[in-house]
Write a protein that binds this DNA or RNA. Structure first.
Ligand code: ZN
Ligand code: ZN
Ligand code: ZN
Ligand code: ZN
Lengths: 144, 144
DNA sequence: GTCCGGTTGAGAACCGTTGTCAAATCCCCC
DNA sequence: GGGGGATTTGACAACGGTTCTCAACCGGAC
């Protein structure tokens, strides 16, 4: 558990809380702010390189992993299994994603949340998580 | 395009339609019938080996790929990106999957289907598809 | 300054998956 | 029954995303 580490350092509610805000970690966080779409770790690494920020690929992966675990970024998988990341709002939500351009809309569905947990309870499954993503073609891509 | 191949052979509605029902392909199909849970390609390959059916791993992958494309099996990805396969019912449904043992329950949620299409329409997205999977730990795995 | 644990990064390792291509197999027609 | 040509197979290599390794590198505490 990460919760056993000493938490006196850093604010408990900010991204990168409880860890050293190193140049590399701040750079990854900044890159995520720069994007509005889901991006792969390698794309983020590439953007950092273009910006002149030298950050090792392993560090990008480690940082994204940490941010995902702390729910500061959303991670989902493309059709072919690649992990992609996006800085999202704090509340639980899902995504409406354009399969052409990647434009993303956050969506909430309290009824769906209730439905999934009732289904799980009904069958005795514990420690539930769920994935729900909607893919389509946005207006811009339909027009273009 | 696979649609350019001659399709006169085989029934158009059966699994493996339009391709030679070779020993290997039949063995993979049989293995899928034997399982009631989602299984990875490598697990299926291993089962075939245990049964004495010698089928190359590449052939297992190729066959599963073909069956997935023809919608004769469902393919989804575990939380760490691995593809898993299952022979399912024909109607549209989603899954409640044990992340330990793969035990699967098919679930239907008409309300969810309606919700996803209304969300999509609301934002002007067209040509909609969606993924919805629920992961948890089944009673057997919780007990064990 | 020294200490010391957290952090980094280059590269290797890992692992699921796909590509390669010669050999085997099947199907059709003679 | 015996070619012949397309399909299929499988051992193995290659690939791509991700994680591991571990020596070097910080950066606060004292
Ligand atoms: Zn999100
Ligand atoms: Zn949800
Ligand atoms: Zn299914
Ligand atoms: Zn559905």
């Amino acid at each position: 558990m990460t919760s056993t580490e000493h938490q006196e350092h850093g604010r408990a509610d900010a991204p990168l809380a409880g860890v050293r805000p190193t140049r590399q970690r701040l750079a990854v966080a900044a890159a995520l702010e720069a994007f509005d779409d889901f991006r792969s770790a390698q794309e983020i690494h590439e953007l950092l390189a273009q910006r002149g920020e030298k950050v090792g690929l392993a560090t990008v992966y480690r940082t994204l992993q940490r941010l995902t675990e702390s729910h500061d970024v959303d991670m989902l998988r493309t059709e072919d299994g690649e992990a992609i990341y996006r800085r999202c709002s704090d509340t639980h939500h899902h995504h409406l994603v354009c399969r052409e351009c990647g434009a993303t809309v956050e969506v909430e569905g309290p009824a769906v949340e209730r439905w999934t947990s009732s289904i799980a309870a009904e069958h005795g499954y514990a420690d539930i998580s769920h994935t729900l993503e909607i893919f389509g073609t946005c207006t811009a891509c339909t027009a273009g």
